[in-house]
Design a binder for these strands. Structure first.
Lengths: 217, 217
DNA sequence: CATATTGTGTGGGATATGCAACGGAAAGGG
DNA sequence: CCCTTTCCGTTGCATATCCCACACAATATG
């Protein structure tokens, strides 16, 4: 259960009064839970849709050999659920795990889509907020596809860097995760990526120290 | 303008009466247009959201060197728009082009999100349909990320094949596009992909003839 | 504090992948 | 129907990328 202040910042319940918020929780049978780092948030077994209200989580795929890949990075407003992600190969399993302390709301997807007779006003606003979050998610996934569809490590890196730079509106930015995870994110070998970073640094195309990067131009 | 029969099949106007449909078009200032193959549908200059009602289109990226990459394959129900796709590197341009004869509806995104005083019932249904389309889009993009995040051509191919197989519920399926486009879709060199396909065929992991494939198991 | 775990930086060797190029098949257009 | 364009299938060669392995720093863990 969110406090009145937290509610104001909530992406899903934006523009909804505290009174309505509580009624929605019961009407939609929504569940709100908090998580600690490394805790398992969701294992794609239920039909619920989850919304990250606060904190940070990751959607990861674990293939048959146990190799983990970061599929998505979920911040506040991040949405996930069985109906939103493809459980690709049958052998693979998907998980949402907590990175930084999280508040998450779970709502049954069918409840959101079905038009309920009463409470229609509230329902309508919630659906609109949900639509906004879905649009954001689609955009985030598009970014990811943009990066992954590049042919070489160098291009992937620069594409991703430009995205981060554009988001902060600054040529200098900080990676949201470790370099090892970055390699995972752009789906390449870590050592090969390190080599490429070195080359980019030597050429002067980028500067970096730790997780802080600056791109030229 | 759709006929009454076509309206029934429309993903965006699903569950909306013909009367309401016409009023929505004017209320939302929606525009409906048809396109012929190779015609430019959308160039990401306006803030409109487009929905493919019928036919097939592709979202492609053209980088500074003029190399085109298929980012998305849009069938009936496909959604696109500036707010839904990332204009990755500034030098690149994005386009939606017609593949097979298309009907497309354009609606201003702000119109969809803003709560209008009158016509709220219609609005609400439209937003819910939109939400459904966005969820579908997110799922499609997730699939794409799933494929692209694989490390080798072989894994990418098999991942994609399994997805198609799962969609049709059959071990045999037909590619939605040419082999050349497939190479583009999984972001690899065409000849390298052909080599890998040959190997998979020799091993007996897959069978193929033209665009028709069968996977083992 | 000692100890484990994870992250960073580097290199050598094997190979999967990209590139350029070609010829024929198939398909589309006038 | 011919002609143009796209698609398919294949090869040799160069190299970018992967895999394995190591050393050390940074961070967590008890």
């Amino acid at each position: 259960m969110l406090s009145e202040q937290e509610l104001a910042k909530s992406p899903l319940f934006h523009d909804i009064s505290y009174q309505d918020y509580r009624e929605i929780l019961s009407c939609f049978q929504a569940v709100q839970r908090s998580f600690r780092p490394d805790e398992l948030i969701y294992d794609f077994s239920s039909d619920a849709v989850g919304v990250v209200e606060r904190g940070q989580a990751s959607l990861i795929r674990i293939d048959e050999e146990g190799v983990a890949t970061v599929l998505e990075d979920l911040g506040a407003g991040g949405v996930f659920g069985k109906t939103l992600a493809f459980a690709g190969s049958t052998g693979d399993s998907l998980e949402v795990v907590c990175r930084r302390p999280c508040d998450v709301v779970f709502i049954d997807y069918a409840h959101i889509l079905s038009r309920c007779g009463h409470a229609c006003q509230r329902h309508s606003i919630l659906v609109q907020n949900m639509l906004q979050l879905m649009a954001d998610k689609a955009q985030a996934l598009s970014c990811r596809v943009d990066v992954l569809s590049r042919r070489s490590i160098r291009e992937k890196l620069m594409c991703y860097f430009r995205q981060l730079s554009q988001q902060t509106g600054n040529r200098t930015f900080t990676l949201p995760f470790s370099l090892s995870t970055l390699a995972d994110y752009i789906a390449t070998d870590r050592s090969a990526m390190m080599r490429e970073l070195k080359r980019l640094r030597e050429e002067g195309t980028i500067r970096s120290e730790g997780r802080q990067f600056t791109i030229r131009q």
